[in-house]
Amino acid sequence: MNDVSTNAYVLLSAILFTIGVVGVLTRRNAIVMFMSVELMLNSANLALIAFSRARAESDGQVITFFVIAVAAAEVAVGLALLVSIFRAKQTTNVDDVSTLKG
């Protein structure tokens, strides 16, 4: 079984990350932005696991495990915030939440 090179995984990770970034920057629906952030986290996980294999150590995978746990917490809190905002403003459009401007 000949493995795919680590570089290829990292490149894939970079592509997914960039798609996530562009998603965060262009979409105005807060939930879709949020999902784009999850995509970015996921791409980082992919790179971590690729490095873990390259170094033949489990640490990368353990850190990925932590990232998933933190992401779960983050999603819970973030979605709660979205619900609160929606209650107050009846919208999920982030551009409508712009009263804190200079």
Partner: peptide
């Protein structure tokens, strides 16, 4: 001058970040 950067749009801040 710098005030214009603080538009209140989270996505603009994210853009600065990027």
């Amino acid at each position: 001058g710098l005030r214009t950067f603080q538009s209140g749009y989270v996505r603009s801040y994210a853009l600065m970040f990027l």
